[in-house]
């Protein structure tokens, strides 16, 4: 299983092909499969106003192909949650200066078993938690189907709803916060069958793991 690449403003130039794939896959998944028509773009790439220098993308790359992705923003910058889904988070919010907003999670269906897909998903969850821990975050927020609460609960993560769920496109959708701590990373690693760091990146200048390319 490959490692998960951390791609941000500092090393995006080393990932031009992979980022382009990432935006196309996002369009396939969110516009094509999930029918979020407001994201539709003629060039077939899902790129919005949050895909700027404040965004960090986590990519799982297998043999040159991007097979899973996620996007993270610090809550000190504008986020999808604060700008578009604030109504879903009107109960209580985690401390914004130590929180990340997690958006655009996708894992491509690769004609494999549910178990194989789950392994890729869980690797991504490990990466998200490791990234947040290394940056000394305390919470990760997300907007998603209620069923994600079960998915995260199954890997031992503690979540807190941030507001009343709403039915969006026929499914109950909520904003929630995930508690960031070592136990959460550990249980995710155990569920994914992994040990040690899952993050990598091409020529990360600062803050990241040792430079290493797991092509």
């Amino acid at each position: 299983m490959p490692d998960v690449h951390v791609v941000n403003a500092e090393n995006a130039h080393l990932y031009t092909d992979e980022l382009d794939q990432h935006f196309r896959r996002r369009h396939d998944v969110f516009v094509g499969r999930r029918g979020w028509s407001e994201l539709q773009r003629p060039d077939g790439r899902d790129i919005d106003e949050f895909d700027d220098e404040t965004a960090t993308h986590l990519l799982i790359i297998e043999g040159g192909e991007v097979v899973a992705g996620s996007r993270l923003h610090p809550h000190t910058a504008p986020t999808l949650l604060s700008r578009k889904f604030a109504r879903l988070a009107n109960w209580q919010l985690p401390p914004m200066e130590t929180s990340l907003d997690w958006t655009r999670l996708y894992v491509l269906p690769r004609g494999e078993t549910a178990a194989a897909r789950m392994r890729v998903s869980r690797l991504m969850y490990c990466a998200i938690m490791q990234y947040a821990l290394e940056r000394e975050m305390s919470a990760i927020t997300f907007v998603g189907y209620l069923s994600l609460i079960e998915v995260f609960g199954a890997i031992g993560w503690r979540t807190t709803p941030l507001g009343m769920p709403e039915v969006i496109d026929g499914r109950a959708t909520l904003a929630a916060g995930i508690a960031v701590d070592e136990a959460a990373l550990f249980s995710a690693l155990a569920a994914a069958g992994r040990h040690g760091s899952v993050l990598t990146g091409r020529c990360l200048v600062s803050g990241g793991p040792a430079t290493r390319d797991a092509a």
Partner: peptide, 20 residues
């Protein structure tokens, strides 16, 4: 609905210790 999800996964996690 929310409460049910939390009760369910917690029960499942505690009754199925395989990750441990």
């Amino acid at each position: 609905h929310m409460l049910g999800i939390y009760s369910f996964f917690r029960a499942r996690l505690l009754k199925n210790p395989s990750p441990a």
